[in-house]
Amino acid sequence: MNKKDGNVGVTPGIAKISTRNVNVYYGDKQAINDVSIDVDRENVTAFIGPSGCGKSTFLRSLNRMNDTVAGARVEGQILLDGEDIYASGMDVVQLRARVGMVFQKPNPFPKSIYDNVAYGPRIHGLASGKAELDQIVESSLTRAGLWTEVKDRLSESGTALSGGQQQRLCIARAIAVDPEVILMDEPCSALDPIATARIEELIHDLRGKYAIIIVTHNMQQAARVSQRTAFFHLGHLIEFGETSDIFTNPREDRTKDYITGRYG
């Protein structure tokens, strides 16, 4: 965000995630420039912008996934409920349980459907016994809109499911550890239109239960699933606001040019 943009992503109210003057670097290359944004729990937030604009890089900084990239570093402040997630005492494993991630390509573990969902609750000690674990698995698969399709085949491999089912399994796996935030990095880009529609319905159903942020190249999808939209360009946050305003009455010429297809 350049000086002219000001605190374009800062909104009044209580934010689930707040970032202030965040910069992300890969070695000497700066990918994110001075981004400040507030994300609340009540609305689905979409990050849009052309390829290479930094939206996925910024998303991954919100649960420290960039820690796994050699040479990556994050400057500035990222707060989850007011707590700095880059503080030296932060437990990154617990952070990623609180801030789950669903990736572009479905990535179920090479385990049974049941064990895919049960994995997180097991390692975090969230179930006191088999009956409670069974309930978590059923509840998570139900919330992910998958229970009725797989309840009689829980012992089968998660990798045997269709692409759309695998993505919903990954969402079930994410919510099984009772997260507060779900990050989705282009979760439908590898899916057919029917599977995409199911994921979009699921996002609508999960709204308000979790703070949800979705990165998408599909502007129609952003318009369908989100209530707030952030437009990124060349590593800068250009505009952030109500989705309806961004798509019908953007304040910035760069946003208007992207929305109307003049570049991107």
Rank of each mutant, 00 (worst) to 15 (best):
E180Y: 01
H236L: 04
L234P: 02
Y26A: 06
F232K: 00
T229G: 00
A160G: 13
T248C: 14
L202T: 10
L154F: 10
L59C: 10
P250D: 13
L62D: 06
D205F: 10
S56Q: 00
R153N: 12
T229H: 02
K4G: 14
T68K: 08
V69T: 05
R96K: 01
D38K: 06
A70I: 07
V99P: 00
A72T: 09
V39Y: 03
V99I: 13
V102W: 01
G82Q: 08
Q135Y: 07
D40N: 12
I14H: 10
I17H: 11
I85Y: 10
G6D: 15
V44N: 00
D134Q: 08
N218V: 05
E75H: 07
P50T: 11
I259L: 04
K29F: 03
L141N: 12
Q165R: 09
R254S: 03
I182C: 01
G76S: 09
V8E: 02
R96L: 01
D91K: 06
D67C: 04
K55Q: 02
S88D: 15
T159R: 15
I213A: 04
G241F: 09
A144Y: 14
V215M: 06
S112C: 07
V69S: 04
V24S: 10
Y210T: 12
I14A: 14
M184V: 00
Y86P: 09
A131N: 09
F231C: 00
Y114P: 08
V24Y: 04
C188Q: 01
V102A: 03
T11G: 04
P12S: 11
Q227R: 07
K105M: 03
V8D: 04
P110R: 14
V117F: 02
G158S: 13
I171K: 05
S61C: 12
S244Y: 05
F240K: 13
R122F: 06
A195C: 09
E75W: 01
P121F: 11
E149K: 13
